[in-house]
Deep mutational scan, measured.
Amino acid sequence: RNRTTFNSSQLQALERVFERTHYPDAFVREDLARRVNLTEARVQVWFQNRRAKFRR
């Protein structure tokens, strides 16, 4: 699988949700994935990586 590149509008939407919660539930992830046209799995991994970055 190739690395996913996120465009600025996708990142903006992802970061907005991250500000609200670092652990979005499945419903939030599904909705977000639909809105930014990504798979739920990509959204889930983005949050895992974003939390790791946040802890650094």
Results as ranks from 00 to 15, higher is better:
43 V>G: 03
10 Q>E: 03
5 T>H: 05
4 T>K: 10
31 D>S: 11
55 R>M: 13
6 F>H: 06
56 R>H: 06
41 A>E: 14
11 L>S: 09
26 A>P: 12
52 A>R: 10
9 S>A: 12
23 Y>H: 09
17 V>E: 10
26 A>E: 13
1 R>N: 15
31 D>K: 06
46 W>V: 00
26 A>S: 13
38 L>W: 11
5 T>A: 13
49 N>S: 11
47 F>M: 02
8 S>Y: 08
4 T>I: 05
44 Q>H: 05
31 D>F: 01
2 N>C: 02
32 L>Y: 01
38 L>A: 09
30 E>Q: 12
25 D>N: 10
47 F>R: 03
17 V>A: 09
14 L>A: 01
54 F>C: 09
19 E>K: 08
6 F>I: 14
25 D>A: 07
38 L>Q: 00
2 N>W: 06
46 W>L: 03
44 Q>C: 10
17 V>N: 06
24 P>M: 04
31 D>R: 09
46 W>C: 00
34 R>I: 03
31 D>C: 09
35 R>A: 11
32 L>S: 02
52 A>S: 06
10 Q>M: 05
52 A>Y: 06
54 F>L: 12
22 H>Y: 04
15 E>C: 01
13 A>N: 06
34 R>Q: 08
13 A>F: 07
26 A>L: 11
46 W>H: 05
12 Q>V: 05
1 R>F: 08
21 T>D: 10
31 D>T: 10
56 R>L: 10
42 R>F: 11
34 R>M: 03
47 F>Q: 05
30 E>V: 04
28 V>E: 14
47 F>W: 01
45 V>Q: 15
36 V>E: 11
17 V>T: 11
8 S>Q: 13
39 T>P: 13
15 E>L: 07
41 A>T: 15
11 L>Y: 04
23 Y>S: 03
42 R>P: 02
31 D>I: 01
46 W>K: 00
56 R>D: 15
27 F>W: 13
2 N>S: 10
40 E>M: 10
44 Q>E: 13
5 T>Q: 12
30 E>C: 11
50 R>C: 06
53 K>H: 07
26 A>Q: 11
38 L>S: 11
18 F>C: 01
28 V>K: 01
4 T>Y: 02
8 S>G: 10
51 R>G: 01
32 L>T: 04
1 R>S: 14
45 V>T: 10
10 Q>L: 04
18 F>V: 03
29 R>H: 00
20 R>E: 15
43 V>S: 03
3 R>K: 08
45 V>S: 11
41 A>R: 09
45 V>G: 13
47 F>H: 06
28 V>P: 01
2 N>T: 13
55 R>H: 12
33 A>H: 00
42 R>E: 15
52 A>G: 03
51 R>T: 02
7 N>H: 05
4 T>S: 13
16 R>P: 02
42 R>Q: 15
48 Q>F: 05
20 R>F: 13
5 T>G: 12
50 R>P: 04
54 F>H: 14
46 W>R: 01
35 R>T: 10
21 T>A: 03
16 R>G: 11
16 R>K: 14
43 V>K: 00
27 F>R: 14
14 L>G: 01
30 E>I: 08
15 E>P: 01
38 L>N: 08
20 R>W: 11
15 E>A: 02
26 A>V: 11
31 D>Y: 07
15 E>S: 00
10 Q>Y: 04
26 A>R: 12
35 R>E: 13
33 A>N: 05
18 F>P: 04
52 A>M: 12
26 A>N: 04
55 R>A: 15
56 R>G: 13
32 L>N: 02
12 Q>R: 07
6 F>G: 00
9 S>I: 09
38 L>F: 02
33 A>Q: 06
52 A>P: 01
26 A>H: 15
53 K>E: 15
10 Q>I: 11
37 N>P: 00
9 S>R: 10
15 E>D: 04
27 F>P: 10
33 A>R: 06
14 L>D: 01
21 T>E: 07
29 R>D: 01
33 A>W: 05
49 N>R: 07
50 R>G: 01
41 A>H: 08
31 D>W: 09
26 A>K: 14
36 V>P: 00
8 S>M: 08
30 E>R: 09
30 E>L: 13
37 N>G: 10
32 L>E: 01
19 E>C: 13
34 R>T: 09
47 F>A: 00
49 N>D: 12
18 F>E: 04
55 R>K: 06
9 S>M: 10
50 R>Q: 13
29 R>Q: 05
16 R>N: 10
20 R>Y: 09
2 N>G: 06
6 F>N: 01
56 R>F: 15
3 R>H: 10
24 P>I: 06
27 F>E: 15
4 T>N: 14
28 V>I: 11
35 R>I: 07
37 N>I: 10
48 Q>E: 14
